[in-house]
Design a protein around this nucleic acid. Structure first.
Lengths: 137, 137
DNA sequence: TTCCTCAAAGATAATAATTCTTATTTAGGA
DNA sequence: TCCTAAATAAGAATTATTATCTTTGAGGAA
């Protein structure tokens, strides 16, 4: 299944270990931007012999190698995000939910805007929106 | 000087203590979105008798009462932002610098966009941009 | 102005999340 | 199959933050 993942690791010169596979699976299984704690709990259930320190180190190495990114909430809790396409986030002020928001038209709009309006002394690499509000359901 | 600040505290029913004044001054003095640590260090110099716990508690109460806001970054350290007008952030990938970016035209563009393109099941309260890139200076 | 009360501050212990250390194991190339 | 560097396990250490409990003082009332 995760052929893409094995290939990605190899390209970066990282070894394909059972721990890394398990953690990658955990993240793809856990939706909604899990915290390290969520991931550790899930891992504990299915692979009780993987140590906590390893989970942190693996997560770090994934972030370093752009297989994951980190997201921060108001509440100081770090979360991980497995989606690698350019997308934005919806933050719920009531619950702690974070959802992805993809919108090509919006991306285009912003890209065009910044092409026309350069920021002085700053080279833009990426623009992400934090859309805060409330889900109604 | 910080008449606005004293008034704001009173309005919220909060006492105007020397500690709160000192911490408020520290934040207005420290540019670039200081961390709690930055603030504590600054406070220590000028008011060595203010305790660390107090700084955290005061910062929390400021955030709760909308005198400050917290900034989300990918790093796990929380930063504080004293500017309360709607603005965006420039994140430098090289240094850890965060700068404010205000742009009325952009705000208008985004506002109009979301007026025309509602997000399903979500009521937007605020949209902020995280603009990542590099400063060249 | 003085007094009183409750919110706020100080000191420090406790907690929680993450990082570090060191010994051991193992993936994957030779 | 063997070898080596990279990765993991285990648990100690660190760090940031929160909680507790006692003392202090801001600010309203008398």
């Amino acid at each position: 299944m995760s052929e893409f993942f094995r290939k990605a690791l190899k390209e970066k010169g990282l070894k394909v270990t059972p721990q890394r596979v398990a953690i990658f699976e955990a993240i793809t299984h856990l939706k909604n931007h899990p915290t390290a704690e969520n991931i550790i709990a899930y891992i504990k259930k299915n692979h009780p012999n993987i140590s906590v320190g390893t989970v942190y180190k693996v997560l770090d190495s994934f972030v370093e190698n752009k297989l994951l990114s980190k997201v921060k909430t108001e509440k100081d809790i770090m979360r991980y995000d497995s989606v690698l396409t350019n997308h934005h986030h919806l933050y719920c002020t009531e619950t702690d939910r974070i959802e992805d928001y993809e919108d090509e038209q919006l991306n285009k709009l912003i890209e065009d805007y910044f092409k026309a309006h350069k920021i002085k002394n700053f080279n833009i690499q990426e623009v992400k929106l934090q859309i805060t509000g409330k889900f109604n359901n």
